Simulated scan of single mutants.
Amino acid sequence: MIFKVYFQETKTEIPVRENTKSLYIEAESERDVRRKLKDKPYNVEFITELKGAFLEYEKQNEEFKVLEIG
């Protein structure tokens, strides 16, 4: 499954919508996404699974690159 993760770049940064970044990651579940990102300095705001029309829409974005973190 592909998930979209919304995050701030540092855990100490207060979430501000204008500073929110996103990335795409392949994982089995939301819990798996959090496990894969636990060593990163990110302040994860929201994780959503992409499927169907939502996934096809995101694939049209030139920044769509799925991270494969073990």
Rank of each mutant, 00 (worst) to 15 (best):
M1G: 06
M1L: 09
M1K: 10
M1N: 10
F3M: 10
F3T: 08
K4T: 06
K4R: 14
V5A: 03
V5N: 06
V5P: 04
Y6M: 07
Y6T: 07
Y6V: 03
Y6E: 08
Y6P: 00
Y6Q: 05
Q8K: 13
E9R: 12
T10E: 15
K11C: 11
K11G: 15
K11W: 10
E13Y: 05
E13W: 03
E13Q: 15
I14H: 10
P15M: 00
P15F: 01
V16I: 15
V16P: 02
R17F: 14
E18M: 10
E18C: 12
E18N: 13
E18P: 05
E18W: 08
E18K: 13
N19F: 11
N19W: 06
T20D: 01
K21H: 11
S22R: 05
S22T: 09
L23F: 09
L23V: 11
L23P: 08
E26L: 07
E26M: 08
A27K: 03
E28T: 11
E28A: 09
S29Y: 03
E30H: 00
R31T: 07
D32V: 05
V33N: 00
V33C: 04
R35M: 12
R35A: 13
K36Y: 13
L37M: 10
L37C: 11
K38M: 12
K38N: 13
K38W: 09
K38I: 12
D39I: 01
K40D: 07
K40M: 10
P41S: 13
P41L: 08
P41I: 04
Y42G: 00
N43W: 08
N43E: 11
V44A: 06
V44C: 05
E45V: 07
E45F: 00
E45P: 00
F46R: 03
F46G: 00
F46K: 04
T48Y: 09
E49M: 11
E49V: 06
L50D: 02
L50N: 02
K51A: 13
G52D: 08
A53L: 12
A53D: 12
F54A: 14
F54L: 14
F54T: 11
E56I: 02
E56N: 06
E56A: 04
Y57E: 12
Y57W: 07
Y57L: 10
E58I: 00
E62A: 11
E63V: 01
E63S: 04
E63T: 01
E63M: 01
F64R: 01
K65H: 14
K65V: 15
K65A: 11
K65G: 00
K65P: 00
V66W: 06
V66L: 07
V66F: 05
L67G: 04
L67N: 13
L67W: 08
L67A: 12
E68W: 02
E68N: 15
E68S: 13
I69M: 08
I69A: 07
G70E: 15
G70V: 06
